[in-house]
Simulated scan of single mutants.
Amino acid sequence: MKGRTVVCTTQSEAEAALVAGLLEAEGLSPTIERSPLRSVFPVPIAFFGQLRVTVPDEEADDATRLLRRFETVPSSGPKVVPLHDDLAPLEAAIGYRFRDRGPLEQALTHRSRAHEDGTGPESTNESLEFLGDAVLGFVIADLVFEEYPQSDEGQKSKIKASLVSYTALARVAESIALGQHLRLGRGEEKTGGRHKPVLLADACEALIAAVYLDGGLAAARALILRLLAPLLEETRARGLAVAGAGDFKSSLQEYLQARRQSPPAYRIVEQSGPDHDKVFTVDVAAAGKVLAQASGRSRKEAEQQAARRALEALRDGSVDFDDAARR
């Protein structure tokens, strides 16, 4: 019977699947073997034992050469290939060190990558987005409740919405260079997925969920307050004025009316995602010119963010209505 050589050992399901996918893509025959260790606790075996990626002995040299492209293999031979050390800079950026990097790896894995690797939807960050959205919403709602006790429900809701919007989360993701760590399929990579606000916002929610699963609610709350600190300071500086400032559509219409321009017109240019998690991309135009474009989880949110960007463009001089009118 032919033997097999271990080329990678890990406790991460995602990493084992990634290594196996890389080897299969090169025509090799990897197998993921689980530790025989058993547990009475209802958690994945990877928490307690090792996962080993093996190949037939005759493929060991080829597998080792392939994996060296991603990480240096110890000189003693093909034993362990630690692919996840590249996540250390991200841990430093968020101020949190994972005890188990499995949830973190999943939080960074877009469905386009999972589709190519053949690991299935359970290995993508979509379910973590759902959990992260709930954890984020709870933490921010609790914060708003404590800091704005005199405001009414509508004001509280608008303050919360300004802090958990796609735009806010994309800003947070950019501040920690989250896009550099996303695990994307080749198609998504080619279309600039690392810089798409929607993908960044989704990954930010998934990251929050990963910290929650690894360290609990206290760790997740500390992370949220740390990452959103600049936005929170902006909100505190404006006070309850932020509740009114959230209606960017009204502000844009007033701005245009004051300059005798036609009202803004909004148009959906794209819808993506499953029915339960749609993403809308909307542009806003006036005087025959598109002023801005933005995305959101609802048409209303996308329109509000497009109006906000349009106001910014008008106020900083990026748009000249006199020129537009002459055309």
Score class of each variant (00 low, 15 high):
residue 297 R to G: 00
residue 71 E to V: 07
residue 203 A to Q: 04
residue 150 Q to H: 09
residue 205 E to S: 11
residue 301 E to F: 05
residue 163 L to R: 12
residue 258 A to M: 08
residue 182 L to T: 03
residue 191 T to Y: 07
residue 17 A to H: 03
residue 174 E to C: 06
residue 239 G to P: 09
residue 63 A to M: 00
residue 179 G to A: 07
residue 204 C to F: 03
residue 72 T to N: 04
residue 292 A to T: 06
residue 94 I to N: 00
residue 44 P to T: 02
residue 267 R to H: 10
residue 272 S to G: 11
residue 246 G to R: 09
residue 66 L to I: 15
residue 247 D to L: 00
residue 181 H to F: 10
residue 124 T to N: 00
residue 75 S to A: 15
residue 237 A to M: 08
residue 81 V to F: 11
residue 22 L to N: 03
residue 189 E to T: 14
residue 131 L to S: 04
residue 123 S to M: 10
residue 20 A to D: 08
residue 107 A to V: 00
residue 169 L to E: 06
residue 135 V to Y: 03
residue 322 D to C: 08
residue 240 L to K: 03
residue 104 L to V: 05
residue 235 T to F: 02
residue 314 L to Q: 09
residue 164 V to E: 10
residue 62 D to F: 05
residue 46 A to W: 12
residue 299 R to F: 08
residue 140 I to P: 13
residue 98 F to E: 05
residue 17 A to F: 01
residue 93 A to R: 03
residue 172 V to L: 09
residue 241 A to C: 04
residue 11 Q to W: 10
residue 263 P to G: 05
residue 150 Q to V: 07
residue 112 S to N: 04
residue 77 G to F: 14
residue 40 V to T: 13
residue 157 S to G: 13
residue 215 G to Y: 04
residue 163 L to K: 14
residue 245 A to W: 09
residue 101 R to V: 08
residue 108 L to Q: 01
residue 53 V to F: 01
residue 179 G to S: 01
residue 240 L to G: 00
residue 65 R to V: 13
residue 315 R to N: 14
residue 190 K to W: 13
residue 58 E to H: 13
residue 169 L to V: 07
residue 97 R to G: 11
residue 256 L to V: 12
residue 104 L to Y: 01
residue 305 Q to V: 01
residue 173 A to S: 11
residue 194 R to G: 10
residue 77 G to W: 12
residue 54 T to P: 01
residue 47 F to C: 05
residue 42 P to W: 09
residue 237 A to K: 15
residue 34 R to C: 10
residue 289 K to N: 09
residue 264 P to T: 05
residue 31 T to K: 05
residue 66 L to K: 06
residue 213 L to Q: 14
residue 195 H to A: 15
residue 194 R to P: 04
